[in-house]
Design a protein around this nucleic acid. Structure first.
Lengths: 297, 297
DNA sequence: TCTTTGTGCTTCGTAATTTGCAGCGCTCAC
DNA sequence: GTGAGCGCTGCAAATTACGAAGCACAAAGA
């Protein structure tokens, strides 16, 4: 789209941090780019970049502008997709950021169910911790985010939100595996493997131990639930995960215990989008499907 | 803003209904305009206008596009205003559409209260019936709409909404003026002056008489409440208005009777904005002030 | 029925704009 | 103190957009 050219160039400069670098990226000369930016700043009425000795950086006005640029870019894409849609073709692309727990079972199932109805639609699925997921929404890199315990939910539209308990995961040969009910303090007696603080489940665990005499003493801090699951099979360690990331019904190598809400607060699984944004058709439809599935959890 | 030029031209064509007329409006030749449109359609990937024997008209794709154009335009203005704001100047413009009842007392008071704090802010206040007010929001002609009984409130963000009873207005020398309570059927015994169907209060009256044996038999249909107020002073006629449009406490030439909800359903006074739109700073602040005042009604 | 008017679209020479090249002055790292 | 990297600017070349005129067509009017 030609009329967006200048705006795209500005975004490129913002990313590259230097006019010359951005010029190279965009295959024009730095002089041309430089003058376009100066021209734009003139008619915009205010400088957009701070000039530093080693390059440029967005000033506060530029931060506002870049947000506008990204929203316009994505809205134009939405319009084009919608136009393509009404001329008959069911194409489109869905871009979603989600927690690790969503990856093994839930998301693959949802994507294939959706693609059964709409084979022309393509997907980008990004694993992101909750902060990165929100960042993705802000920069329009993802249309949707499905995460536990979103930090700034007021900044986004929450399409749906459900609670899930934290589940303790251990080998079925574990000494505790025969119990009928499990408390958090029982788990802390054994070596435990927990994710780093950026991950929602760790946040909940930290909240929980904060009001206990015992302390979290992680044998292993691992940011892969996959790793955790396999690790607990080989010893007495205990891991933690949400039900949506487990196959509690069918995987009998493990013992699973939902921890009561009074021990560890339940996690809020929320489907978010950028506040007030009109999503592309494909993403909006997929969001609807997700909302229905999540409500059934 | 140069990069919007093509989009503005498209909007002008959509309004003028003909390329040549729009060209004249925008002070360029029709050939230039024609080529720009063709160029845009080519890179957009689909035609935007239907070619008719006597001109052009937006096709469905064009309708989507024009919406995008208007939102883009207004969002850019918002960004520019916000930038001006953070460089120290408190300028801005608020554009609001509202029902007639809002004009005499409420809106003037609110505007002057706001301008006491922000003298740099200018206002456009448009009197609109509820349909035209919604149309104004859609076309980004107004930032806000304050109307009774909005028709399609699902299409908009409702910032606040309160109920107001319908008030019967008559001269203080009217035979009914001495009563302590008034029912709708009492009013219908006398000549009544009501607004045309496009106005919210008429809609409520029509609803009310629909479930009665008596019928609405308007002596006078007038779209000016101002007219109505003065008319009822000179005879036995009865008019209807919302409290917000009256000075019930101080104007003793009249007798006022709130009609009970079971007779005439209360009207919902709602403050609306375009769904998901980020308002310019000035409008957003004014909306906040309005919401507070309305909540106190 | 024939003319008139108004439409979108095209061609072509020209005017306006944008680009690339080269070079300036500057700051920071080594 | 020197070189690399930065933003910025003059100037000529290249690209792009423009205006004037004219074509084909369709609807309205005489």
């Amino acid at each position: 789209m030609k009329h967006l050219q200048t705006l795209l160039l500005i975004e490129a400069v913002a990313i590259a941090g230097s006019i010359r670098k951005a010029a190279e990226d965009m295959n024009i000369t730095s002089s041309a780019l430089n003058r376009r930016i100066q021209g734009f700043e003139a008619e915009f009425g205010a400088p957009v970049f701070e000039r530093l000795p080693r390059g440029v950086r967005l000033n506060p006005a530029g931060e506002l502008l870049i947000q506008h640029i990204r929203s316009q870019k994505s809205d134009l894409e939405r319009v084009q997709a919608q136009v393509a849609d009404l001329s008959g073709v069911r194409r489109g692309h869905v871009s979603i950021a989600c927690s690790q727990a969503i990856q093994p079972y839930f998301m693959p199932r949802e994507v294939s169910e959706y693609r059964r109805e709409h084979p022309g639609v393509t997907f980008s699925v990004h694993v992101r911790d909750r902060d990165r997921a929100e960042e993705d929404l802000r920069s329009y890199e993802s249309d949707l985010a499905l995460v536990f315990e979103p930090r700034h939910s007021a900044e986004f539209d929450v399409l749906i939100s459900v609670e899930q308990p934290v589940v303790a995961v251990m080998s079925n040969s574990h000494p505790l595996a025969t119990k009928t009910e499990l408390r958090l303090r029982d788990c802390l007696e054994f070596p435990h493997v927990v994710p780093p603080p950026a991950i929602g489940i760790r946040y909940l665990l930290d909240l929980a131990v904060g009001r206990m005499s015992q302390k979290l003493d992680p044998t292993i801090e691992a940011d892969s639930f996959e790793f955790m699951r396999h690790y607990v099979l080989n010893g007495k360690a205990i891991g933690f995960q949400f039900p949506i990331g487990l196959d509690t019904a069918n995987d009998d190598r493990f013992a699973f215990f939902s921890l009561p809400d009074r021990d560890v607060p339940h996690g809020k699984l929320s489907l978010l989008q950028m506040k007030g944004r009109t999503l592309p058709v494909a993403s909006a439809r997929f969001a609807n499907q997700l909302a229905l599935s999540i409500a059934d959890l």
